[in-house]
């Protein structure tokens, strides 16, 4: 199961040293790649470099860029000693831990349960992926009203069914954190579910049957055969969710605005607040550079350990 940690770059590129370096026509493949490369450079790298560039400046929104002051590493120095940054980083990590753990577990479990062609499974599958189609802004609105202390359904039914007193969900640090975690789970568990079920259904049936014949029970089949065989899919799902945790902010922006205090303020929302509420664009850029570094480090670590590209399930 465990792969020896391997440098993905050297593993992916066996250098054919013996061959002549430039064969006739060696440019042809590049000709096909260049248009896509240009789009990627423009669309992806420009904003990243712009963020990097701005992070060395003190620049307020509304002022022309020429008027920005170059202040070197000041923004970065400030960031590392800024308790607010550490606080939102901690919120982000806690949020990521709970949402991803629960979403992965729940999504995989549901996929395993609904994988079989039992009656009604396909209807349930369709209903279940609906949250994925709702825009995050709308998700934020829906759940803000569901959690509303006065008119929300949640308080109403908690009272009507369980006799629980109304809670000020979005006004209490812990309850608000719980609320955004729950909302994220509601929206993103279907994502895990849908790609895991696709992976399970693509498994060669004879391999699964072989494990039945070898005497594997239901649990052993899941943990020793099925899940290891879709490991690369699980890794990619995990990766996409992790990146999303550092990226997504719309739901919190609408539900809580990051509050109360900074109890639901994720890193990306904090950057947004810095940039557009306190108008410190340079400083916000410096924090977003931190975000990029974190996401890049996590992705590289996961890809190096699991190497999903190499682990394609042939045979």
């Amino acid at each position: 199961m465990a792969h020896a940690p391997q440098d993905p770059l050297t593993a992916a590129l066996p250098m054919p040293m013996a061959k002549p370096r430039f064969e006739p026509g060696f440019l042809t493949p590049y000709a096909f790649i260049i248009p896509a490369l240009l789009v990627m450079l423009g669309g992806l790298l420009y904003p990243v470099f712009m963020a990097l560039y701005l992070s060395f400046y003190d620049w307020q929104i509304g002022l022309p860029l020429e008027d920005a002051d170059f202040i070197g590493m000041t923004n970065f120095a400030r960031m590392f000693t800024d308790p607010q940054v550490w606080e939102v980083l901690w919120v982000t990590l806690r949020f990521g831990f709970w949402t991803i753990t629960i979403e992965m577990t729940l999504g995989v479990a549901l996929a395993l349960l609904l994988e079989k062609p039992i009656r009604g499974a396909s209807v349930f599958r369709t209903i279940f992926i609906l949250p994925l189609m709702v825009s995050p802004v709308v998700v934020g609105l829906i759940w803000r009203y569901l959690f509303d202390a006065r008119i929300g359904w949640i308080n109403y039914y908690l009272g009507a069914w369980f006799g629980i007193d109304p809670q000020v969900w979005l006004g209490d640090a812990q309850l608000a954190f719980f609320a955004i975690v729950l909302t994220d789970i509601w929206q993103w568990t279907p994502f895990i579910f849908i790609i895991v079920i696709a992976g399970l259904q693509a498994l060669p049936s004879e391999v699964v049957e072989a494990s039945t014949i070898d005497g594997a029970n239901w649990w052993q089949q899941i943990f020793l055969v099925k899940l290891p065989m879709i490991k690369s899919i699980l890794v990619i799902a995990l990766l996409m969710r992790l990146i999303d945790v550092f990226r997504g902010m719309e739901v919190m922006l609408i539900m809580t605005g990051g509050g109360p205090g900074r109890s639901t303020e994720l890193l990306s929302l904090h950057i947004y607040n810095r940039a557009f509420n306190t108008q410190q664009l340079g400083y916000a850029s410096a924090i977003s550079v931190l975000l990029i570094v974190i996401v890049f480090a996590i992705s590289t670590a996961i890809l190096t350990m699991a190497n999903p590209m190499k682990n394609k399930s042939d045979v």
Binding site: E209, S211, I213, D214, G215, V225, M229, D314, V315
Partner: peptide, 30 residues
């Protein structure tokens, strides 16, 4: 009876090896 209760072994047309296990682990799985 379920397959495991029948005391049978089977070789499939597609081989149906476990791709994530090495040869020894494939053979010793049962």
């Amino acid at each position: 009876a379920r397959p495991k209760e029948r005391d049978i072994a089977m070789v499939f047309q597609s081989y149906a090896l476990y791709p994530h296990m090495n040869v020894g682990d494939n053979m010793s799985f049962a």
